[in-house]
Every structure is written in C-alpha cells, then in structure tokens.
C-alpha cells in the first residue's frame, strides 16, 4: 500500500466524478433537491393551478 498521507493530500489526481461519488453530503444534497423540485414543487404547483369550475 502506498503512503497513505500522500494519496490523501493529492486530491487533484482523483477524477471529478469519483470525487463527487466519494462525497456523501453532496450526494445527500442532490438526492433531496432533485425530487423536491421535479416531483414535489412541480406537482404541488400543478394541483394548485387547477381552475375553479364555473
């Protein structure tokens, strides 16, 4: 195994996608925001915009 501190201190060698996947809190943010916007907010807006019957 290579020197541990060295790998830790050179994050620029870690590809961007791997960095994203290694960051649980970023993932948490994405996983909560996307459905909140696309599903809940959009859905609630559609229900709210149903017109009144005459």
């Amino acid at each position: 195994m290579t020197n541990e501190t060295e790998t830790e201190q050179t994050p620029e060698h870690v590809p961007m996608m791997q960095q994203i996947l290694d960051n649980p809190f970023l993932l948490l943010f994405l996983g909560v925001t996307i459905p909140t916007v696309l599903y809940i907010l959009w859905g609630v807006m559609e229900v709210a915009s149903i017109p009144l019957a005459d």
């Binding site: 994405l30 996307i34 459905p35 599903y39 859905g43 559609e46 229900v47 149903i50």
Partner: peptide
C-alpha cells in the same frame, strides 16, 4: 440517488388535473 424518487408519480397517473 438522482432519479429513483421521482417514481412517486406512479401513484398519480390516474388522477385528475
């Protein structure tokens, strides 16, 4: 993580509006 939760809409396909 990104998309699975959107499927909640499965339950609203037969709803009005």
């Amino acid at each position: 993580i990104l998309f699975l939760q959107l499927a909640s809409a499965h339950h609203l396909l037969a709803e009005p509006g």
